[in-house]
């Protein structure tokens, strides 16, 4: 995987202001830097996974203003003025969120590589719809590919998280 590309016209880094996991953030970032690279390489937020790296698998799903977005097709520059949330934002005081716990307890994760993307896509759903039916869960996770679980346990995990919601 190469990220170096020579060009006569280097993209200039500029300061972009946005919220990152609930905190105001000033990012010094060039216009052509992908959000995925910014999160992983510049911020060390490696919970967001590089999967297919081409917009087809959902492993890099993050939330922008609460909606699921693919960090591999999003420029960091686009996030100016918006709120970016990654999987790292879900745990509270070192404890897994209800949704994360449900994935853990329902065995909704095996190798785990797709899990952060799955969890963020499910998080976006549950914020909008407190009691989604199975069809809504399947639709919300439709852009996330898992090669281990067969999806059943993942759907059960989201159902359990919704059931346990206060």
């Amino acid at each position: 995987m190469t990220h170096a590309r020579t060009s006569p016209r280097p993209s200039r880094a500029r300061v972009r202001l946005f919220r990152l996991n609930g905190t105001d953030h000033a990012a010094l970032v060039a216009d052509n830097v992908l959000l995925l690279d910014y999160l992983r390489e510049a911020q060390g937020l490696t919970g967001t996974k590089r999967g297919c790296d081409g917009g087809e698998c959902g492993a890099c799903t993050v939330l922008i203003d609460g909606s699921p977005r693919l960090a591999c097709l999003t420029r960091a520059q686009e996030c100016e003025g918006h709120h970016v949330e990654t999987i790292e934002a879900l745990a509270e005081a070192g404890r897994m969120s209800r949704l994360q716990r449900a994935f853990h307890e329902r065995l909704g994760t095996q190798c785990g590589y797709c899990t952060p993307g799955m969890v963020m896509a499910a998080e976006a759903l549950l914020r909008r719809d407190k009691a989604p039916d199975e069809a809504a869960i399947r639709a919300a996770l439709g852009g996330n590919i898992c090669r281990c679980t067969g999806y059943v346990k993942i759907i059960e995990a989201v159902q359990e998280a919704a059931r346990d919601a206060p």
């Binding site: 995987m1 590309r5 060009s7 016209r9 052509n32 992908l34 591999c72 520059q77």
Partner: peptide, 10 residues
């Protein structure tokens, strides 16, 4: 995939 080529955004 490769990174993005050099460009600026308006």
């Amino acid at each position: 995939m490769d990174g993005l080529p050099e460009f600026r955004v308006l």
